[in-house]
Simulated scan of single mutants.
Amino acid sequence: MNDYVPPPEFMPSEAGWGCTFVGFEEREFTKRIAESVHGIIWALLEVGYDLSRLEGITVSARYAESLAELDRGFETSAPLAPTQEYGTGMAMAAPIVREGKIMSRLMLDASIGVALLSEIEQERSFGLCTAVHELAHVFDLANKDKAFPGVLLKPYPGPILEVEMFKLSSLAWDEYFTTEQSARLRPASLDDCDEVLETALDDLLARLAEARRAFFTHRDFGRVFREMSTTMQILLKFSAYVLGTLDGLGRGDEYGPKSGDKIRASRFQTTFDSLRQALRQMASTYPTWQGVEAFAPLRAVAQRALEAEGLHLAMTDDGQMNIWVLHPENFTPQQHMAASLGQPI
């Protein structure tokens, strides 16, 4: 029998254990879902997860509505919404602020709660893997807030180029870590995330190329930067899902079973391999990071990835950022000073 008791400072508060159910009528059913989620939380506490920043749990039959209505505790430009990139999101560890402290609320679509109680192993493992993945986000957010306090959910404290590359690349770490942590619970998750990358790869590379070509018609440096950085962010994130799952399954030197051939045959292979190295470098010192410089390897990958697509960035001596867009036919590069220090595009 395991008599291990997690340290009190790792435990969610009494409120953090609370489950709110939206759109459910049968009380006994919701009680079973809550017990299942609590069992997962307790198991993670026993292996050393700090879940003290878990503010609570919502399981909703109206998931999109519940996300939109969540009180974040800080000003945002738009309400939360399920991800819609090549699939619809069904779970999220939503960052919030309560009494000045960064917390997370676990938001689950009702289908995840139902899956946790399923008698079908494939469905139950999907629900378990999803819940652990999101609770790993809770753990990771707490660790980052300790490593660089006063930085998260605020303007990034650095030169404009670092700001933009952090914004572009940080999601890759988030998804690498959480998929690495949850992969062993459902090895089939590799097929799922790899299929997304394989499906999206050609489209995203085409979008990058088209944004670059379109620049030579509209000549808007802010627009081409936004379009290319947003697309590259998605591509790095989808790649990180696959890389994290491979590492979690002990298959770290491999490529995805479906996306691998496409990546090796594309101009993206160098970026993919560099991303793997950068994420492993960050993981080697996690969670004892000493500030935002822990993300320097990932920022460098993001900048080189844009350069490989024809968008070159450089800091000036006076703290501004220059953008060069290389013509697809290798004509004379266009150059423009597009943003100044402290004013992200």
Rank of each mutant, 00 (worst) to 15 (best):
A338T: 05
S118W: 03
F221T: 09
L152W: 12
D253I: 01
K146L: 12
E121W: 12
V301W: 09
T179I: 01
A339L: 08
E26D: 08
Y255R: 11
L44F: 02
S274Y: 10
E35Q: 01
Y63H: 05
E309G: 09
V325G: 01
D140E: 15
N2P: 12
E329K: 15
G127F: 01
S77I: 15
F225L: 04
A136E: 03
A131G: 00
L235V: 04
F238N: 03
E198Q: 11
I33D: 06
G127Y: 06
R223T: 09
Q233T: 14
D50S: 04
K144D: 11
N143Y: 09
P82V: 03
G87R: 14
R219I: 01
R251M: 09
L108H: 00
W289D: 07
P155M: 01
L116M: 05
E99R: 05
L106A: 08
L243P: 04
L168C: 00
R186W: 14
Q233I: 06
K258F: 10
G87N: 04
A206Q: 13
K31N: 03
S36A: 06
E123D: 09
V138G: 09
E65Q: 14
A308P: 10
A110E: 10
P328F: 06
G150S: 05
E309I: 14
G248N: 02
L117A: 11
V242P: 02
L235W: 14
E162K: 00
G310R: 15
R53L: 07
F295P: 00
F74Y: 13
T270M: 04
A172I: 07
V97L: 14
D253E: 14
I345W: 02
Y286T: 12
V325L: 13
Q303G: 04
S266N: 10
D247R: 05
T88G: 12
S77G: 15
G319Q: 04
G252P: 06
R276A: 13
A265G: 03
V97I: 15
S189N: 12
M165Y: 03
G252Q: 10
A147D: 11
L51N: 02
F177G: 09
T285P: 01
L135K: 08
E26I: 06
D140M: 14
R223Q: 08
D3M: 15
S189I: 12
D140K: 13
E9S: 09
Y176G: 12
V37I: 11
A283T: 06
T332N: 04
M337E: 03
P297I: 07
